[in-house]
Amino acid sequence: MTVVPMATTDIKEEPPVSLWRDAWFRLRRNRLAVFGLGVVVLLAFTALFGPYLTPFDFLSQNLDARNMPPSLTHLFGTDDLGRDVFSRVIFGTRTAFLVAIVVTAIAVVIGVTLGALAGFFGGWLDRVVMWLTDMTMSIPNLLLVVVINASLKSPISSWMESRYLATLNPFYRETIWVDFLLVFGSMALISWPPYARLVRAQVLSIRSRPYITAAQALGLTNRIILMRYVVPNALGPLIVAVSAGLGTAMVLESAFSFLGVGVNPPTPSWGNMISDGLRVWQHYPHLLAAPAAVLGLASVAFSFLGDGLNDALNPRGAK
């Protein structure tokens, strides 16, 4: 028997290109996305190594050098307590990233698990999950945070203080954990629905693709099909959503801190720095400009990166 070989002319000589590599090539050609990626990497680096980079401690006050304009020693000047604004912005980056990553990570874990289960198994599970999603989505996040602040924060803080007095365990003195866990934990608990919806829709659409039927026809088990067929194909849109979600969480953190229901002073956050700077912006505009500019930059960077990823991962849907 003979098999007619394919004509050799149509065999390309370039190395094979996986869809991920292909997306990376496309991302690299998108200038705004590269800019966004660069800024995000820089901010992440700052957040990680910030404490080793800052010329001053963010808490150390120098009352002789209050409200100094930007100079070579104090790149962004100093605030009303003589603290170095540059150092505080860098620490604010750490706060922002910590919050964004914690909030997004919790939300993604909850959302992806619920969404994937609902999409893959359907039936009553799907209905329950979707009902839960809709319920959660109807809770206004600002209101929830304010309510939690008002109702839970002070009893827990005073309980921790009493535990500290009783045990002298320094863990109980770290009230910052209350801020983080309470406020941003609750934020995470209400920001998973978009991920759940996205993943459910992805799984539903992938489950009906012919390559899933083809895999079933080969006799492959559900576990293999889920891990090797469904998950890798659902990842693209999730990456886009996570990138955008990180930016949103950062802005949200700043917004809550600005309103005084997020991170509390003296822990620096772009939000509470903006809030402080706003009171004196006519006299010392740099106190407002520095944190606001960095927040704006971060927000724009994540948004560019998210858009770029979207175009890179869904080339046909773009434009």
Partner: peptide, 22 residues
Amino acid sequence: SSIGGTPPEPGRRPKGCPFAPR
């Protein structure tokens, strides 16, 4: 009887007659 190979993709047109390779 079949024609071997596949039509050229845009951007990969052969020099000369486009059908020549097949």
